[in-house]
Design a protein around this nucleic acid. Structure first.
Length: 213
DNA sequence: GGAGCGATGTCCT
DNA sequence: GGACATCGCTCCG
């Protein structure tokens, strides 16, 4: 199976892309590139293959449901910024804010297809290198906690970062990848509004996460 | 290979 | 004090 493996930079997705409702943004984010630029060496890059939409103050499953607090302020701010939170005492999760400034909404990154910087990802994940087999490759970034670890995402380092700034370490880029069929399912790991279809993934992609269906 | 469960920080009631 | 947008290990089949 031939897979895109170029480390070439593509065009940054502009801020207006994130102005729309979270489910619209989530679906359109599939196939885009999530990039961690570093001053030394090649970037770490993965294609977005699975996301979830969180709808702000109207959505009981969203962190913004209780209203604006110090913790979730980024979700209420301007679109295109990184909201990072710590969960279960163990893992970080990464979102991008959407909707206009003053309105909450976000999209959670759940899984990437590793494209570039695979050795760096494995090192960050504490996995042995070289990577052996397709399974080890999928293990790098299939899950919200895993992809944060692979990209070195932490709350201190990245919360509030601007995905649209040319000088930003974290960016979302568009290389024109042709997105095929998109599946929509309920979100994973939540207890409130658990039936609502708001998880978007690329059909047939081997890098998606998820144990519950 | 699948179900069960412990780890463990931070926020909010 | 409890819930939590998870992961990886154990145990059992």
């Amino acid at each position: 199976m031939a897979r895109h493996t170029s480390c070439a930079q593509a065009s940054i997705v502009p801020r207006k892309f994130y102005l729309k409702a979270p489910d619209v943004v989530a679906r359109k984010l599939l196939g885009k590139l999530l990039v961690r630029n570093s001053k030394a060496g090649e970037p770490i890059m993965g294609r977005i293959v699975e996301v979830e939409a969180y709808f702000g103050e109207a959505d009981p499953a969203s962190h913004s449901f209780p209203g604006k607090t110090a913790r979730n302020a980024v979700l209420f701010g301007p679109p295109g910024h990184a909201y990072v939170y710590f969960i279960y005492g163990v893992h970080f999760c990464l979102n991008v804010s959407c909707e206009p400034d003053g309105r909450a909404g976000g999209v959670l990154f759940r899984a990437l297809e590793p494209i570039c910087g695979l050795e760096a990802m494995a090192k960050a994940r504490g996995l042995p290198t070289p990577l052996a087999g397709a399974r080890a490759l999928a293990n790098l970034t299939s899950g919200p906690g895993r992809l944060c670890q692979a990209l070195g995402v932490t709350r201190v380092r990245d919360n509030g970062a601007d995905f649209t700034a040319p000088a930003s370490e974290l960016q979302i880029q568009d290389d024109g990848f042709p997105v095929g069929d998109v599946l929509v399912t309920p979100r994973i790991g939540i207890s409130k509004d658990a039936e609502r279809p708001a998880r978007f993934l690329l059909a047939g992609n081997p890098f998606v996460s998820g144990r519950r269906v």
